[in-house]
Structure formats: C-alpha cells, structure tokens
Design a binder for these strands. Sequence first.
DNA 1: TTGTATGCGTTATCAG
DNA 2: CTGATAACGCATACAA
Lengths: 337, 337
Amino acid sequence: MENINIKQLAKALNLSTSTVSRAFRDNSDISKETKERILAKAKEFNYQPNHYASNLREQRSKTIAVIVPELANNFFSQAIHGIEKIARDKGYHILIYATDDVFEKEVSFIRHLHNGRADGIIMSVSGEANDHTYLNELTQKRLPLVFFDRVYEDIITPRVITNDYDSSFSATQHLIKQGCKHIAYLVINKNLSIGKFRMQGYIDALQKYNIPYDDRYVVDCTNSYTKNNAILKRMLTELKPDGVFTSVERLAFATYYACYDLNISVPEQLKVIGFSSLEIAPLLNPSLTTITQPATKIGTEAANLLFRMLENPESVDPNEKIVLNSKLIKRRSTEKG
Amino acid sequence: MENINIKQLAKALNLSTSTVSRAFRDNSDISKETKERILAKAKEFNYQPNHYASNLREQRSKTIAVIVPELANNFFSQAIHGIEKIARDKGYHILIYATDDVFEKEVSFIRHLHNGRADGIIMSVSGEANDHTYLNELTQKRLPLVFFDRVYEDIITPRVITNDYDSSFSATQHLIKQGCKHIAYLVINKNLSIGKFRMQGYIDALQKYNIPYDDRYVVDCTNSYTKNNAILKRMLTELKPDGVFTSVERLAFATYYACYDLNISVPEQLKVIGFSSLEIAPLLNPSLTTITQPATKIGTEAANLLFRMLENPESVDPNEKIVLNSKLIKRRSTEKG
DNA sequence: TTGTATGCGTTATCAG
DNA sequence: CTGATAACGCATACAA
C-alpha cells in the first residue's frame, strides 16, 4: 500500500512538510493561496494525513470505544445508533466491543483500551460481574468513562439511565389494575443494577396493593432460549400466574413462545408487560404492552456526556447521573379479558 | 492520563527499551526470566504498549472498518455480530460506520479510512449510489475490501451475498401456489443489486406461472415510515393485490401496519411474504412467512474472507463470490384462506 | 541474550 | 508566512 506521505507531497509542491501540515490544520497561519495549492495537490494524490502519526503526535485518537453486552439487540443497536450520530458530528470514530455478557471480556477490553486507542469509553456493563475493582485500579489514569443503562453502582463515573424503579412500579401497578393477582417477575440477573431496581419497583407496587410478595414468582432466567423456555413452561404450569412482568425484552418473547406452546391465551389467561425497545411491538400477537426506553436518546445523551468530559473534564461531576423516562405503552397483551 | 511508556518501564527494570519491547512481541529472542520479570512489572504499572506508536512503526492497525447503511436493523446488527466474533478471535478491533443510506457519507468514510486507520473494510453499500467510480479511483492502493449483501456490481472485489434471485423466485412461487394472482413487489431501490436480483426472481416466477407482469405492482418505497404507509395504503386500495412480496423487512412491517389500518385481513385477503431477519417472526400477528438470510453467517464469512486477504492477498481472487442460501420459512401470513 | 541507534509520519516550537 | 528540527512511543537492524 505504498501510501503517499507528507514528505512526498511537500517535495512535489516544493514546500516544506511543515507548510503542508499547516494546510490541514485550521488554526495555523498559512496563505490562502498556498493552502489551496496544497489541498488541490493532496486531492490529486489522494493524500490523507496518517492517522497514527497524528495521534501519536497529538496524544489523542479522536476515537471512542463503545462496549455493550450484545450487538444483536434492539436496545443496544438503537443506543449505538444514537452514539454514532453524535460522534460523527464531532468527527470522532467509534470502536465497538461486545462482551457477550462475559465479564472477563469486559475487563480485557477495558484494559486494552488504555493504550491510547480510544479517548473515552461508553459502556453498558456485562451482567455477570461481581467484582468491579478492576475499574478502580485504573482510577488514576482511567479513561473518561460513561455508563449507560446497565451500570455498576460501586463505580463512580457519570451515567445515563432510565427511571427503572418508577417504570417497574407503574408496570406492576398496571397489571394489578387490569386485575392480576399473581404476578411473576422475570429477570436475568437480580444482582445487576437494573435487575435490582426494576425488582424493587415490582415489590413495592405489590405491597401498595396488598398483594403478598412470594419469591417463587421471581423467576431467574438465562440468556439461553431453550433454558428459558423450559423454565417458563414449568413456572407457568406450576404457579399459574395471571400476569407476567419481564425485566428485559427477550423474556417477553420467551413468555409468548411458552404461552403458544402451552395454549395459554394472552391476555385472557395471562397478561404480559415487559421492558422492550421493539419498534414493532404493535405487530405482535397479541400486541405487547411495553415499557419502552428512549434507547436512541440514551445513546445521544451518553455521547454528549462523554464529549463534555473530553472537552472539559472539570465540567462534569463524576457523580453526574442523567435519568431519562421510559414510557409505558398499553397494548393488547394487558387488556382486560 | 500521564500514561507510562516503554522508557519508564525500562528504567524501572534497569533494562533497555528494546528488551522491554521484545517481551511483548512473541517472536523475538528474550530469556524467559527477563520476559516474565518485564511482564510482571508491566502488569504492576498497568503498562500497555501504545497502540498508535506500534501501528505507526509496523504500518498496520489491527483494525477493520465495517460500513453499513444502518445500525438499528436486525440484519445488520446480526451481521456485525458475526464480524465481531471473527475479528475478536483474530485480535482485531472494529470501527463502525453508518451511512444512513447517504452516498456522500459512504464516500467520505471510505476516503478517510485510507489513512492507515484500518487495514481493511467490510461494507454493505448505501442504496443511493449510482456512480461508484470513487472506489475505482482508489484501486491501486485500495484497502482490502469485502462487500456483503448490498454490493456494487461494477466494482471488482470479493463479496458475500445470498441467493437472492432463487429466493425471490421461490417466494413468489410460494405466493402463487397459495393462490395469489395479483402479487405486488415492494422495493426500496430498484437499481441496487439486491433490489434488482430480487425483482428478477419475482418477474420470472410470474412468467413461469403465466401471470402477466404489471409494473404498477412494483411499488417503490422509501425509508420513511409515514411515506411508506401512505404509498402502501393507496396501492392496497387501488390495486387490491392478493399477495405482497417485500424485498426488505421494513416493508413487511409497513404492509402489516397498512393492513391493520385498512382492515385487510392477512392472510385471508392478502398474503404477505418478505425478506426478514426478524427472530420473532413467529410472534407476529399473523406470524410472518419470511425469507431469512443467514445474517450472522454472512458476517462471519465476510470477515473470514477479509482476513484471508489480509494474511495473503494473493490467495483471494478479486472476483471471489461466496453465495449463501436463504431459507424460506412458511408461516401463517401466507396460509391458504 | 541484551543494548544502541534509527525511523515510522506527523505536528509544535522556534527561527528566519 | 515559511522552513528546519525535535519529539511523540515503539520496534527493528545491527552491534556487542
């Protein structure tokens, strides 16, 4: 790939490399004429300043890293879309990392990013983590870091989240008002922040309406479709809940599949509500009542926050927390019989 | 941020920088002891070789760029997931770019990638392009490039696609066998390769079954939901087709919405089939008959192809074309009345 | 096996 | 306004 470099371009123009370099930096003094002459020649030669040399020199990469548990997921792809928009406007590039919810990958990604590759990190944490001290170890020279949606409570860094507790409370309340008395809560990781907050909303709503809390109705699920299907079928037959509240989208789908298999009719026999970013929730059979997070907005807010940190670190309080509201959208899956 | 560098580490160990450097490169000679001592200290200091310096020195970035029309799309997020898996195994990083189907962005991304930032590119092209010569201009020092799914016919570079023509033929045939006589074909860009091939399959299937081709039934749609809704409603009321074949997922959803609005019952009055990577197609109302592309596999194949090019450019024929088969999955949306 | 010296392509500093 | 030069952090050729 014998790429042309600044020296060759300078030679071709009978100029020094410094002058050529200046043509590409907006601030430096340079005569309009020379600049134009240089840029024209550069275009002709298809010259692009080498990015690695610039970055090495300037000590910054104009690149941010985005770490998410999974890519093939509506919520995350929408969030990334939001991040992408902002980053593009700022002229930043985006590196993508998927942890597959494997904590070790997360640690490895983060560690390896601390080599100048990225100027900052936007992350939604893996579900499996218990010990996050690895992030604290990096604390002194840690890259600017913004959490979104799935966060570690014990790490102090700015974050963008949604009003999970309130949404869960509303969701549960909605089921209760629709007549449910035995409401199951489906969760993948109870210990993860969102699992915890969402569960608390569920519990408190039950209490408010004097429905006894029974921990058999809190169902631990997995990321495996087949396992979930088995777990849910057993739960549905044994406990016969009349309402299901799922803390993540995937579990709402799993519930639908299980109900199809068991010939349980939704919403007549079982009402279903779930957190979900699915744009075609109205097209489901039956259309799914959702708590919809502003996924794209979460992405743009997280990106804006990170850029504020990059531009002026002092301007951002490490405890800053942006809370966006999710929306409860009622559809047929929770309609009264 | 004052990141530790190789010099400081060397000093702390009373070694030269070259020795330290060697500890991180597997090939060079270095005593096991020293190496271990160095790596231990490196860990203690949390030292990572600066990526930009390495890349500048080695003239490669261990990074690939992925350019897609959109991120919030099942097909592309699954494909990216596939690419990610392979790249991760190879120790490569991934830069993501979304063109939003704007050709200028695509050109700009590609151009800017030719500055060393990436070693290769995997791209699904924007729909709006007519003049692709910009790619040919780069031809001599062009980065290794692999197309997937949406390709430019006039650019010679390896590609991973699906059997679009056959799939479309089968899809149309399936509608015909289910009794449809007036089949609409919904497309976003007729000129784009996949739009074209898929359309030819549709046309040929009609012909085989002696159904006259009527170009009013080929409906040009857009990426805007509201516009599509209007277009489809008009089409459905004016032409009253009994079958709809959509060349992209989004248009199947749009058809469903339009049918809901117009009280057209699927599949009784109208049968619907579409290209789609939606994993929950069985949960739609009615469940959607799909031509499902192996999206993740497309991603892994494209990545493998690119890595073959990177490892040994000669081993890959520029005309190489990997064709994967999509699957026609029959569901209720095309069942006989 | 280890150390020394050089250059990767840029940009900032300084001098002219 | 332009040119010479040093430095960014690392990896290699060469020397020891």
